[in-house]
C-alpha cells in the first residue's frame, strides 16, 4: 500500500508543528520501498510518521488538516475505523516496548485483539511472525518465558514480530535502532531490507548512515516542513536545496 499526502498541516494547540506537507504536487510514499525521514530534533519527522496511523489522536489539542490517503481512503474521514487502520499500519517505537508478558502472548496480542482465539491459528501466527522477524531460532524454546528477559536487540525484533502478527501492509518505525548497539542495529537493518519486499516501510532516523544504507527515498524535514524529498542516492550525493546539503554534510548550525 502506498500513502499519499496532500497539503497536511498539524497543530499542537497554537504550535504549527507541520506546515503544508505535500503542498504543491503532493507527497507520495511508495509501496514496497523504504522511505526515511531525516532532520534535526523537533523538525516534525516523528510527528509526521504518527499521522499515518493516527497516533496523534492520543494527544490533546492536536489538529490535523489536509488529506492523507492510504489505499484510496482518506484516513482522517469520520468513517475511518481506527482499529482497522492501525491493523494495516503497524508501528515500531524508539525504545523496545515488549509487554510484560510471555513472548508468545506478546505476538498473539494483536491477533487476539482482532478476535482470533483458536490455539492452532495463534500458534501458526506466532511462529510465522517470529520467523519473519528473524527471531524464531533464538526464542522458539522459550516462548512461554517473559519477553522482558530478552536482550535489547531481541526485544526490538520481538516488537517488529508483534507488529507483523497484525498482518499490516505498512510499517512505521520511529528511530527503531537508536537504543541498540551496532550489531543489533545491523541485524535490524538486514531485517528491514528483507521486509521491504512485502511491506511499505517508513523510518524516522537520526543516523544518516542508516538512511543511506537502507532507504530508497529520503525526506529532509526542517521546522515542520519537508525541504527536500527525493531518492536517497540523490539526497546524499547531490541535494538540490542548500539546507539539505548543509544538514547532511553536518554544516548545519
Amino acid at each position: 500500500m502506498s500513502i499519499s499526502i496532500k497539503n497536511c498541516d498539524l497543530f499542537y494547540g497554537d504550535f504549527h508543528a507541520l506546515k503544508g506537507i505535500g503542498r504543491d504536487e503532493g507527497m507520495e510514499i511508495s509501496e514496497n520501498k523504504v522511505t526515511a525521514f531525516i532532520g534535526p530534533s523537533g523538525c516534525g519527522k516523528s510527528t509526521f510518521i504518527r499521522v499515518f496511523n493516527r497516533m496523534n489522536d492520543l494527544i490533546q489539542n492536536c489538529k490535523i488538516t489536509g488529506e492523507i490517503t492510504i489505499d484510496g481512503q482518506n484516513i482522517y474521514e469520520k468513517s475511518t475505523d481506527i482499529t482497522q487502520l492501525r491493523k494495516n499500519v503497524g508501528m515500531v517505537f524508539q525504545k523496545p516496548n515488549p509487554f510484560p508478558m510471555s513472548i508468545y502472548d506478546n505476538i498473539a496480542f494483536a491477533p487476539r485483539t482482532y478476535g482470533i482465539k483458536k490455539r492452532a491459528q495463534l500458534d501458526e501466527i506466532v511462529e510465522r511472525s517470529l520467523r519473519q522477524a528473524a527471531l524464531w531460532d533464538e526464542v522458539s524454546d522459550r516462548l512461554k518465558k517473559s519477553a522482558l528477559g530478552l536482550s535489547g536487540g531481541q526485544q526490538q525484533r520481538l516488537c517488529i514480530a508483534r507488529t507483523l502478527a497484525a498482518e499490516p501492509k505498512i510499517i512505521l518505525m520511529d528511530e527503531p535502532t537508536s537504543a541498540l548497539d551496532p550489531i543489533s542495529t545491523g541485524t535490524i537493518e538486514d531485517l528491514i531490507r528483507e521486509l521491504k519486499k512485502t511491506y511499505t516501510i517508513v523510518i524516522v532516523t537520526h543516523n544518516m548512515q542508516q538512511a543511506t544504507r537502507i532507504s530508497d527515498k529520503t525526506a529532509f524535514f526542517l521546522m515542520g516542513e519537508v525541504i527536500e524529498y527525493d531518492k536517497t542516492r540523490q539526497i546524499f550525493s547531490n541535494p538540490k536545496d542548500k539546507r539539505t546539503e548543509n544538514y547532511v554534510t553536518g554544516r548545519f548550525g
Binding site: M208, Q209, T212, F236, S237, T244, E245, V248, T249
Partner: peptide
C-alpha cells in the same frame, strides 16, 4: 568522517 554530498565529491 563519512563525508556526503558536496564534501564527498
Amino acid at each position: 568522517e563519512h563525508p556526503v554530498a558536496s564534501d564527498f565529491h
